[in-house]
Computed example of a mutant assay.
Amino acid sequence: MRLTDEQWAVIQPLLPHPTKTTRRGRPRRDDREVLEGILWILRTGAQWSELPRAEYPPKSTSHERFQEWNEQAVFPLILAALYEQLEDQELLDLREAFIDGTFSPAKKGATKFGPTKKGKGSKIMIMVDANGIPLAVQVCSARPAEVTLVQETLEASFGLDFPKRLIGDKAYDSDGLDEELRHLGIEMIAPNRRNRRKTQDGRPLRRHKRRWKVERTIAWLQSFRRVRTRDEVKAVNFLAMVQLACILILVRIISG
């Protein structure tokens, strides 16, 4: 997958600059070449061994650089920097946000996965702003109910600003969650489950009809096959792939 010059201009300043060493050996491969190889894996979902040698650096170079950046927490730092750029360009709308989870079947001996009716897998929790721009993402076992994962998702925010309203589906209908978020200055809006007393109605609840924005963003994430189906054994590696997909989404918005 190739980056445009405009997209690379956004990403390049945010990548770490390796310190020079006197150790002899092959010169370090260009970051752009390596990143494009990693993005090819992200997009196609192929194994590292299938990376086309004629177009990208060797699989060992690409995988090692991915691990290096992941261990240095480069991807969360890039997301935080992109969040600031979006704020500076007044592209974020935090008057309301939407939250949802999506299932990714786990292959191999993956960690942080759980059995569900859909099989064994991981859950990706995502929060987006009023325009569908990703604000937070996290990976967890697919077993816990989404209502129990809201606080962790908020803490995984790329920035420090919380939305005024958080909108979810019936899975988020909970008096406990409403009270918990109220202490954070967030109004939780979710339609009531059938067996619940009616606590929300009228104008605020009509905001729920705009939940298609988070569903659209989930579709964007799932267009990356490495996100749609989890191949990484380690949860930190799978999260890095999801974060990298979010980086691409934000970069496309910033670069126009």
Score class of each variant (00 low, 15 high):
R182V: 12
I249S: 01
R194M: 08
F113H: 04
P57N: 12
G25D: 14
F162I: 04
R28I: 11
W69V: 00
R65T: 01
S104P: 04
P16E: 09
E36R: 03
Q243T: 08
R26E: 11
K164E: 12
M125L: 11
I189M: 11
L77N: 11
I253E: 09
R226A: 11
V227N: 07
E215K: 14
P204E: 11
N237Q: 09
K123A: 02
R210H: 15
K107Q: 15
G37C: 09
K118F: 08
S104R: 00
M125Y: 10
E152W: 15
E179D: 12
L166R: 03
H208C: 14
T217M: 13
S62D: 08
E55N: 04
I99C: 08
D201M: 13
K20T: 06
K112G: 03
P76V: 09
E90K: 13
L205H: 00
L94F: 07
K234E: 08
A110Y: 08
E36A: 07
S60C: 10
G121Q: 07
I99V: 15
D161N: 08
I254E: 03
L154Q: 05
T199I: 14
L221W: 04
A235W: 02
L14P: 04
F75P: 00
S104H: 07
P191M: 15
K170E: 09
E187I: 13
Q151T: 15
A106W: 06
L94K: 07
R53Q: 11
P58G: 06
L181Y: 00
L154N: 02
L77H: 10
T19M: 12
A130W: 02
T19C: 11
P13L: 03
R216C: 14
T199W: 01
T229Y: 06
W48V: 02
A46C: 11
I254K: 05
E55S: 12
A73L: 05
D161T: 12
S174T: 05
A245F: 02
K209N: 14
G256P: 07
A81T: 09
L135A: 09
S104K: 01
A73M: 04
L42Q: 10
V242L: 05
G109I: 12
A110L: 07
M125R: 08
L239F: 02
D175Q: 14
D88Q: 15
A97I: 01
E33F: 01
K170P: 10
Q89D: 02
L39F: 00
L244T: 00
S60V: 08
R225F: 02
W220P: 01
